[in-house]
């Protein structure tokens, strides 16, 4: 058995335990956002998902700011994961990338740790807030979008733990 396989029930009921992984394959194949078989998405859901793109943009910016403030933190792996998550959210929320550019007055100030602050602690706070926002938004989504937001929220909780 492959080393990465999950424990499986011994005997003929092995197939039953594989439900989660088999189901996940279906999730990947059949429920990708925007696929022909995907459920219809309400305007409200689409707007909320676009809002989470902004939350994730702030996470990416926070990693950049933390790296600038304290290069010794070696955040490149985590920052790359956050950027990948942003790409996935943008792909799931096309309206977020097709919106007109905001005016200078409405552009939010990028997050940055206060001078002299504990950069790691500040970054953990940013991650905790973003994870909570994604988790909250997840409950109002459905299908693959709920799965994606929930997964990103969980990952950011993991980031926070890794920085503890």
């Amino acid at each position: 058995m492959a080393p990465t396989s999950a424990p499986v029930p011994a005997g003929p009921s092995r197939r039953a335990f594989l439900a989660a992984s088999a189901g996940l394959a279906l999730l990947a194949a059949g429920c990708t956002a925007g696929s022909p078989g995907a459920p219809a998405v309400s305007t409200e859901e689409a707007d909320r998902l676009a809002g989470q793109v902004a939350v994730q943009e702030a996470v990416v910016a926070a990693y950049a700011a933390a790296t600038t403030a304290d290069p010794a933190l070696a955040l490149s792996d985590l920052a790359a994961q956050a950027a990948g998550q942003l790409d996935r959210l943008r792909a799931a929320a096309p309206s977020a990338t097709s919106a007109p550019a905001p005016s200078a007055a409405s552009v939010p100030v990028p997050p940055a740790p206060p001078p002299g602050a504990d950069v790691r602690g500040w970054l953990r706070g940013q991650l905790a807030g973003a994870a909570a926002a994604h988790a909250q938004a997840c409950t109002g989504q459905s299908g693959a979008r709920a799965a994606l937001l929930g997964s990103v929220a969980a990952s950011l909780r993991g980031h926070e733990a890794a920085l503890a």
């Binding site: 989660a20 429920c31 989504q141 459905s142 709920a146 929930g150 929220a153």
Partner: peptide
Amino acid sequence: VRLLDQSVQPPVRELAVAELG
């Protein structure tokens, strides 16, 4: 995650996302 994809009730999603984290 599969449950998040398949669920219809927000409280179930709330449980799922918390436990996933």
